[in-house]
């Protein structure tokens, strides 16, 4: 088994997928961190101070002004206002400048779309490429059961996803440390906000150190990526062409990003996997796309989708005619 997994890893490394992913991450990171530096400069110019309290207070007032014309965003903004006010009242800087804060924001923003896209680069042709190149026959003539072959591919996928998340973390650290410095690992972060309609429940709010928060966030990002990876994996078995699998998955992910913004009145949409990808929003305390969704619920929905697609993958692969 170990040998089979190693074999799969050799193929992935040979295809230079990790190099491509690293290059994409580095390119995007450089742009984001540069944009962040620029933004900080423009805020400083506008307010004439670097005091974060002043900046946060200004943000709160700006949000209050948007309230009257916010329409359906009203609840979200109200929660955001209350949360910012809580930070302010407890003298906790929500964005302590430094590399950890940048990493936190970056992983939070990329967990729903960017990271899954990177995972797709690996997962989407894991099986279909073997078929299109004809190497699948060689693989299946080996004296190993089909189940074990697929299992080794899946384990390789999980390992690669972990590696990609790690690359993502380490690269964002390296680049942001150059731009913003290394301070802020033990800075406090408020977590445990829960929302009920437009009210913010602060009874369970507590402070955690930023490094703990970041590890937790990466854990959640990892889970999201595994789910997306598993679904792409299924598509790569079901579809002959990698491009078709990629397209289908992309469509789902983008639909999810759009739906999360507009499904608040379509209740049963909460059973779709793509609406549940915003796991981190629960931890940071913004309003869920559909009322009543919780972290436990989303994890369960995602796990169910994952399990379902695994069953489909293994049944189809072990029974399929290969010619």
């Amino acid at each position: 088994m170990v040998n089979l997994v190693q074999n799969e890893m050799t193929k992935l490394v040979g295809k230079r997928r990790f190099v491509i992913i690293s290059i994409i991450i580095i390119a995007l990171l450089s742009m984001f961190s540069y944009a962040q530096v620029k933004q900080a400069e423009s805020i400083k110019e506008r307010l004439g101070t670097v005091d974060w309290r002043t900046e946060l207070q200004q943000q709160i007032v700006d949000m209050q002004n948007r309230l009257s014309s916010a329409g359906q965003w009203r609840e979200q903004i109200q929660i955001q206002i209350k949360q910012s006010q809580y930070y302010l009242d407890h003298d906790v800087n929500p964005a302590e400048p430094g590399a950890p804060t940048f990493m936190r924001g970056f992983v939070q923003n990329s967990a729903e779309l960017f990271l899954p896209l990177l995972i797709m680069i690996i997962a989407v042709d894991l099986v279909s490429s073997e078929r299109s190149m004809g190497t699948i026959k060689l693989l299946l003539t080996r004296p190993v059961s089909r189940f074990r072959i697929l299992l080794s591919k899946y384990i390789a996928l999980i390992l690669s996803v972990s590696l990609v998340i790690f690359l993502f973390g380490i690269l964002s650290y390296i680049i942001s440390v150059i731009m913003f410095g290394n301070q802020g690992w033990s800075a406090p972060v408020l977590t445990g906000f829960s929302t009920q309609g437009d009210t913010l429940d602060i009874s369970a709010v507590r402070l955690v150190s930023q490094w703990q928060y970041i590890i937790q966030q990466f854990g959640l990002a990892w889970f999201i990526s595994i789910v997306v990876g598993t679904l792409s994996f299924m598509l790569s078995i079901l579809m002959r062409s990698s491009a078709a699998g990629m397209g289908t998955m992309l469509a789902c992910l983008i639909a999810g990003a759009i739906l999360s913004n507009m499904v608040s009145s379509w209740d049963s949409a909460k059973y779709l996997f793509m609406v549940n990808l915003g796991l981190m929003d629960y931890v940071s305390g913004s309003a869920p796309p559909i009322e009543g969704m919780t972290l436990g619920f989303s994890l369960a929905v995602l796990a169910a989708w994952m399990l379902g697609s695994l069953i489909v993958s293994f049944t189809v692969f072990t029974r399929k005619d290969v010619y």
Binding site: M9, S162, V189, Q216, V283, G296
Partner: peptide, 29 residues
């Protein structure tokens, strides 16, 4: 990769535990 996999499983478990059960503040204001 196997090592990082364990790390992220740990992070996930920690996040879920923290969210569901809640902890006392580990950092001080």
């Amino acid at each position: 990769a196997a090592f990082t996999c364990l790390l992220w499983v740990f992070g996930l478990g920690w996040a879920v535990k923290d969210y569901l059960i809640g902890t006392t503040s580990t950092a001080t204001a």
